[in-house]
Computed example of a mutant assay.
Amino acid sequence: MAVDPSDDHEQLPCGTSADTLLEHLRAGTVTAHERTCPHCRAAADEFRPLLSALGAALDNDREVTAPPGLLDDVMSVVRAEGRSRGTLRLPDTGSGGTPGDTRVRHSAVSAMLRARVDPAGGLVLGRCRIEDTLEGLVVTATARVLTGTVIPDATARARRDMSTFVEDRLGLRVARIDIDVTDVIDLP
């Protein structure tokens, strides 16, 4: 599976461009798809604080600036992610190829696991940590749920989807997947 990080963040799982959605939200021209799609609605919920701050600044005819310390906070997260050098060694599939050692960074596996959980099921996966133990992978994730979601059902579905991916696509065992629900979100 090829992952091109240059454009992963620009498209929502439904195919809508995040930039287009943001522009529609700013202009008040949200499409019927964007109003009903769970992916677009979840992204709109995340854009809401930004749009609110931007609207207040424009109403007061003042320049929009970042809050003090925001750049330092963002850069500390970026630096921490950059230091994540942990890798998983994938087992040899015996496909007759040349011998070698295939490794995948924890951050790449985390991103792939987040992509396996469909927000349409009511669960939006956040941070995802990977630990390689003798018993198999231990995955610890945070999540937000949409109002009205049956949490045990949504987390069980997410665990099943992540476990299937790890076992079938990566060829690794799963020891445990913990999902910590940190928030309940309401979509308009």
Results as ranks from 00 to 15, higher is better:
Arg157Asp: 10
Ala2Thr: 03
Pro152His: 08
Pro68Cys: 13
Asp132Leu: 06
Gly121Gln: 05
Ser95Trp: 09
Gly94Ala: 04
Thr31Ser: 15
Thr149Ala: 07
Gly122Val: 04
Ala108Val: 13
Asp8Pro: 05
Ile179Pro: 00
Leu21Cys: 05
Thr87Val: 06
Pro152Ile: 02
Leu123Arg: 06
Ile177Cys: 00
Val174Ser: 11
Leu21Pro: 02
Ala158His: 01
Leu51Asp: 02
Leu137Val: 01
Arg48Asp: 05
Arg176Ala: 11
Thr102Gly: 00
Asp8Gly: 05
Leu187Lys: 00
Ser17Arg: 12
Ala108Ser: 11
Asp183Cys: 00
Pro188Ser: 06
Asp153His: 08
Leu70Trp: 09
Glu81Arg: 06
Gly100Tyr: 02
Val181Ala: 01
Leu50His: 15
Gly55Arg: 13
Val117Pro: 09
Asp19Asn: 05
Glu135Gln: 14
Ala18Ser: 04
Thr98Ala: 11
Arg79Phe: 12
Leu71Ile: 04
Thr98Gln: 12
Arg103Ala: 03
Pro119Leu: 03
Glu135Arg: 13
Asp92Phe: 08
Leu71Tyr: 10
Arg116Glu: 12
Thr29Ile: 06
Val145Met: 02
Gly94Trp: 03
Leu187Cys: 01
Thr182Met: 01
Leu70Thr: 07
Thr142Ala: 14
Val150Trp: 06
Gly28Met: 09
Ala42Arg: 12
